[in-house]
């Protein structure tokens, strides 16, 4: 940060005696818009040139196409790539990813609520700090390590199967795994396993905004509801839940967006049916079809833009 605070002119000191830095400071004091430009310039240039520039460039690339014979990108604007995108196989990928994101989001919301509610309503200040850290720690700790943990847990010879065997529930698990779509050869290669891991890794992102929203529900409102004769269940349904909803929406921005764009979990636990992240990665990594990969990412970008606008109207940004 540069010294930008106003300088006091001191009569005892002539301008020629003052150190250079102070003279610069006085010079800047008289020019607030220059100060603003100096402060805002570097971060703004970085974000606009490096980040927005890249995003726009990506968008443009999705209107280029790949020459099927040479594999070179043809820099002519065309909709051909979007036509390639519109195949049943790719639509399957979008549908699969969006469904997973939606199911994961709903599940995290259901799991997050009791903990958030307990933290906001019942926990003592001390316990609340402990719980807060207990949620924060997994949120910030290595996401890859956390995915890896589930590889250990879900492995065929791993701890979960061991428990299932001890409890004599192997047949129930087999039945689950034989189910269409969610099943697979084992928990570590199935949509069911993937779903568990997604819920696990994104759950803290849901807990925190829901807790923040519940924290802001005024106690007097709940008391008023009780005084007016509502049973606790009714207060929960008609007062607490609606007020917590913006928090759920705020959390869902993260859980939804993170699931849409992830490729680590599908690669570690999935089978050959791709998710958006995997498709993009393989298109850039092995197929070198950047235009199609770009077009692929336009879909989650569009879904998220739509989602963010919706979230904004529901007041979720105040809960962030």
């Amino acid at each position: 940060m540069s010294p930008t605070r106003p300088a006091r002119d001191r009569d005892s000191q002539g301008p020629e005696e003052r150190p250079v830095l102070l003279r610069i400071a006085s010079f800047l004091y008289l020019r607030p818009s220059l100060v603003l430009a100096l402060l805002l310039g570097p971060p703004l240039v970085w974000m606009i040139v490096v980040y927005l520039g890249s995003l726009v460039f990506l968008l443009i690339q999705s209107f280029f196409s790949l020459d099927p014979f040479t594999g070179q990108v043809i820099r002519v604007l065309t909709l051909a790539t979007y036509k390639d995108l519109w195949t049943p196989a790719n639509l399957d990928i979008f549908f699969r990813t969006a469904t997973m994101a939606a199911v994961v989001t709903v599940t995290t919301a259901v799991l997050a609520f009791p903990l958030a509610y307990f933290m906001a309503r019942y926990a003592s200040t001390r316990l609340k700090t402990v719980l807060y850290l207990a949620v924060l720690l997994p949120l910030w700790s290595s996401y890859l390590v956390r995915v890896y943990a589930w590889r250990l847990i879900l492995a065929k010879e791993g701890i979960l199967n061991w428990f299932i065997q001890q409890l004599d529930l192997t047949r129930v698990l087999d039945l689950l795994l034989r189910a269409p779509v969610i099943g697979g050869p084992s928990l570590s290669v199935s949509f069911l396993g993937m779903f568990i891991v997604f819920v696990y890794v994104w759950l803290p992102y849901m807990i925190l905004p829901v807790q923040a929203a519940l924290e802001r529900v005024p106690r007097s409102l709940l008391e008023a509801s009780g005084d007016l004769g509502a049973r606790p269940g009714q207060t929960l349904r008609h007062v607490t839940l609606p007020l917590a909803f913006p928090g759920v929406i705020a959390g869902s921005i993260f859980t939804f967006s993170l699931t849409l764009g992830d490729f680590v979990v599908p690669y570690s636990l999935g089978n050959s049916s791709f998710f958006i992240g995997q498709a993009v990665l393989s298109l850039t990594g092995t197929a070198f079809n950047i235009p199609l990969a770009a077009a692929f990412t336009v879909v989650p970008m569009g879904i998220m833009a739509f989602y963010l606008v919706g979230a904004r109207t529901l007041g979720a940004f105040d809960a962030l």
Partner: peptide, 23 residues
């Protein structure tokens, strides 16, 4: 603007930076 790189799916930022840097 500053939140955008965290709010957008990582692959979007990833491939955008990759193609721009490659360019």
């Amino acid at each position: 603007l500053l939140l955008l790189p965290l709010a957008l799916p990582g692959i979007v930022s990833g491939i955008a930076l990759r193609s721009a840097i490659g360019m």
